[in-house]
């Protein structure tokens, strides 16, 4: 699961989003985990289910949309064993 966290954390860092900002976006999309749980996932310490992972990815992809990027991060069903296929 840490493999999954790496691109998400890298995207958060690239977008210069604070944990709180990312959590607010995640919450707005319907997420129900607390910031500490998101933080533990980003640190590779705690796995997330597909749905919560995809909520975070959607939150980040929408930030990329604001910067003319179109959904660069992969969703759970696009990953194989936590990796981008190929």
């Amino acid at each position: 699961m840490a493999l999954r966290a790496t691109p998400v954390e890298a995207a958060r860092s690239m977008l210069e989003l604070s944990l709180d900002e990312l959590w607010v976006d995640y919450f707005t999309l319907g997420g129900s985990l607390l910031p500490a749980e998101i933080q533990a996932f980003l640190a590779g310490e705690h796995p997330l289910g597909d749905h919560d992972h995809d909520l975070l990815v959607q939150a980040l992809n929408e930030r990329f949309l604001d910067h003319d990027g179109d959904h660069p991060l992969d969703y759970a069903d696009e990953l194989i064993d936590g990796h981008r296929p190929g």
Binding site: D20, V24, F27, T28, L34, P35
Partner: peptide
Amino acid sequence: LANAAALATAEMTNEQLQQALATRDLIG
């Protein structure tokens, strides 16, 4: 209530919170 701690520390304005809740509700 469930997210009170996080919402309080996220330093959102009332308008931002209202917007977040409205969007969350719309998606729901």
